[in-house]
């Protein structure tokens, strides 16, 4: 099977976020960059599929130079090929522009029988790129998948919605976005890390894919301003070590009379 994984390289979820000088982006100083956690589930599912059915896994990312480290990590975990579309500064925060670039890259190095993405990328937390790429490639998609069975011509995929589980059937080729629960991502092996260093990364610029980044940026959604949320102050914290029942009664009273939450 020809398998594709879309990988976003993002700030570690534990990063301290500071606003950068431009006022609409984070300060990247001191940030550790990682493969977006949901993309780890996407990659693991792709590698498991390859192990059972044969074929190859191609990881595609669109981002600056540093994203190459994310590609190397995916190779170390078992991907076979890596594609780096270098750029993305100009279209920062616009899922449609990113999806256009990724769809063009997947078409260029594809076709693929199945494409995996994460349900959302850590950072912009939007969850848009997967369904957008599916639409642009004219593929059916299922998002937020927690269980997947892949047949010869179709997949059965489960996703959770409020109060129910939806079981989808979709023909191949299709696009799946991964949610937590789909699998347990493996760690890269030492052998994998060594081997990954030797794999050549296929590099493109958006222009090589027939796309003009400046033109894409013109129509895009924009981040105008970035702020830190106002710090919460003045929480009422009761000491309940000595008299837990007294503290509990006081909490109930406050919730009732002050917060009007009961």
């Amino acid at each position: 099977m020809r398998i594709c994984v879309l990988m976003a390289h993002v700030p570690d979820t534990a990063s301290v976020i500071k606003v950068g000088a431009a006022g609409n982006r984070i300060d990247e100083g001191g940030i550790k960059w990682i493969v977006s956690p949901y993309d780890e589930y996407a990659l693991e599912e792709a590698i498991k599929l390859k192990e059972v059915r044969g074929g190859s896994v191609t990881v595609v990312t669109y981002g600056p130079k540093r994203a190459e480290a994310g590609l190397r990590e995916c190779l170390a975990r078992g991907a076979d090929a890596a594609v780096h579309v270098e750029g993305g500064e100009a279209v920062f925060g616009d899922a449609l522009a990113i999806a256009k670039v990724l769809a063009a890259a997947a078409s260029k190095v594809g076709p693929f029988d199945i494409v995996f993405a994460g349900i959302k990328g850590v950072g912009d937390d939007a969850g848009l790129v997967g369904p957008m790429v599916a639409e642009l490639l004219d593929l059916p998609h299922v998002s937020g998948v927690i269980k997947l069975e892949i047949g010869d011509a179709a997949v059965v995929a489960e996703r959770e919605v409020e109060g129910a589980t939806e079981v989808y059937e979709a023909p191949l080729p299709c696009l799946i976005t991964a949610h937590k629960g789909l699998n347990e991502p493996r760690y890269p092996s030492l052998k994998g890390i060594m081997a990954a260093k030797k794999v050549p990364i296929q590099g493109f610029k958006p222009a090589d894919l027939g796309l003009d980044e400046a033109a894409l940026a013109g129509a895009a959604t924009r981040w105008l301003k970035l702020e830190l949320p106002p710090a919460k102050t003045g929480g009422t914290i009761l000491k309940g070590e000595e008299d837990p029942a007294g503290a509990a009664r006081e909490l109930a009273r406050l919730l009732r009379e002050q917060a009007k939450a009961i």
């Binding site: 070590e241 503290a247 009664r249 909490l251 406050l254 917060a259």
Partner: peptide, 26 residues
């Protein structure tokens, strides 16, 4: 506690049962 509007520092096994009683009463 940094994001809490209200809090109790204590053992949940000792705080929750009387809290439930009080909420039911209210």
């Amino acid at each position: 506690f940094k994001v809490a509007d209200y809090g109790v520092i204590g053992d949940l096994f000792q705080v929750i049962p009387p809290l439930v009683d009080e909420i039911r009463k209210l």
